[in-house]
Amino acid sequence: MQLTILHVSQPVDGGVARVVADLVRGQRAQGHRVLVACPPGGRLGPQALAAGAELLEWPARRSPGPSVPAETARLRRLVRQAGPDLVHLHSAKAGLAGRLAVRGRRPTVFQPHAWSFAAATGGLAEVSARWERYATRWATSVLCVSEQERGDGEAAGVLADYTVVPNGVDLAHYAPAERRAARLSLGLDLSVPLAVCVGRLCRQKGQDLLLSAWPAVARRVPTAQLALVGGGPDAAALAAQARALPEPYRVRLTGDVTDPRPWLAAADLVVLPSRWEGMALAPLEAMAMGRPVLLADVPGAREQLPPQDREPGLIPPEDPAALTNALAAALADPLDCARRGAAARAWVAERHDIRTVIGRVSELYQKSISFGQPTPRVPARI
């Protein structure tokens, strides 16, 4: 059955944008009509168009605030005009405005990409959890990318029809590449141990923790180098933090890059000390290219690693000593990094192929549509 699918997303960059673009590409290949409503700017719009989607301009800020009523009204009009068979809402802001706009009148899949209350603290975290408990009545299904993300939702009292579909990557696009050639193309030393962090420069991804740990790492592995790949709201603060490091510990900030694959290929180790996630996409891309990863043990991280790599590849969140020790140990042993990387590629190829993800999401859509209208109400715990 051919469907008209409307994806609604804010943000328009980073892993969420790549997930949406991959879904669009796969769903267009299946013969569906696919529309994407998102704010202008960022990478999602051009990528969605290139993948065959119809693009709907939906101006929306990333954070909630006074703009929400106008954003909701605009989205309601777009839904009415598009007439989709199903609406797929990506991340907290689209989940907020989208559920208010649709209110269960059409089959609705909400994908948190990490819960809003995980990113908040204090009273704001409780307000966010209360909203999620209430708004779940307007989602036919909640799509989580890890079992831990689903467990965190259930623990917060979000009663929903959950489906878990781990993130996936295009294995042909993120294929193993020769490290020497990648380093030559980037002007990097061919022999030094290199750690690379790919991600939006923001508090969530923990690059500030990485920079704080780096001098101790470099004292133990004196030739080691670090590259932060990406752009974001914390770019200036992180650049200042990097400049303040003593001269021998210089760190390279690349800024936003169109294609992170050369940096992943050049790395001995890819590190992401996130404070929270659903299941980060960059580590899967790194492993698909045959590179080992070092991750904070936040939702999704443990599930995306091969079992034998969970001890060297996971550290407690916001633990500078553990981050230092694990980074230094990995960078001091490039042969072990290469061994771990080969095992990581095999694991991702078996469990995180984007084609499998697209198939499972299609099954979820069919199930959601079969529930009929209106969306069954779930008792809210507030």
Rank of each mutant, 00 (worst) to 15 (best):
3 L>C: 03
3 L>F: 09
3 L>I: 00
13 D>F: 03
14 G>S: 09
18 R>S: 14
19 V>N: 07
26 G>R: 01
27 Q>W: 07
31 G>W: 07
33 R>H: 12
41 G>N: 05
44 L>F: 07
44 L>C: 06
44 L>T: 11
45 G>Q: 12
51 A>K: 03
55 L>Y: 13
55 L>N: 03
57 E>D: 14
58 W>P: 02
58 W>Y: 09
61 R>G: 15
62 R>E: 14
65 G>E: 08
72 T>Y: 10
74 R>M: 13
76 R>Y: 09
78 L>F: 07
78 L>H: 07
85 D>V: 05
89 L>C: 12
90 H>W: 10
92 A>I: 08
93 K>C: 11
99 R>Y: 00
99 R>C: 07
104 G>Q: 02
104 G>I: 04
105 R>V: 04
107 P>W: 07
115 W>R: 02
117 F>N: 04
122 G>R: 02
123 G>F: 12
129 A>P: 06
132 E>G: 04
135 A>R: 04
139 A>H: 01
147 E>C: 11
150 R>V: 09
154 E>Q: 14
157 G>M: 03
162 Y>T: 06
162 Y>Q: 07
166 P>E: 08
168 G>W: 04
168 G>I: 04
169 V>S: 02
172 A>R: 13
177 A>H: 09
178 E>I: 05
188 L>P: 03
191 S>P: 01
194 L>R: 00
195 A>Y: 06
198 V>P: 09
198 V>T: 03
200 R>V: 14
201 L>V: 14
204 Q>M: 11
207 Q>F: 06
207 Q>I: 04
208 D>N: 10
208 D>S: 13
209 L>T: 03
212 S>R: 13
214 W>H: 02
217 V>G: 02
218 A>G: 13
220 R>G: 05
223 T>M: 11
223 T>V: 00
233 P>N: 06
237 A>Y: 01
238 L>K: 03
246 P>E: 08
249 Y>W: 14
250 R>Y: 08
252 R>D: 10
253 L>K: 07
253 L>W: 05
257 V>G: 09
263 W>H: 11
267 A>K: 00
269 L>C: 12
271 V>H: 06
271 V>E: 07
272 L>T: 04
272 L>Q: 15
276 W>F: 15
278 G>A: 11
282 A>H: 07
287 M>R: 08
287 M>V: 10
291 R>G: 11
291 R>A: 09
291 R>L: 12
294 L>I: 07
294 L>Q: 10
297 D>A: 13
305 L>F: 07
306 P>N: 11
308 Q>M: 12
312 P>G: 05
320 P>S: 11
326 A>G: 12
327 L>C: 11
328 A>I: 12
339 R>Y: 06
344 A>N: 01
345 R>V: 02
348 V>M: 03
350 E>F: 04
355 R>Q: 13
355 R>G: 15
358 I>S: 09
361 V>D: 01
363 E>A: 15
366 Q>M: 11
368 S>T: 15
370 S>Q: 14
372 G>M: 02
377 R>C: 00
378 V>W: 12
381 R>A: 14
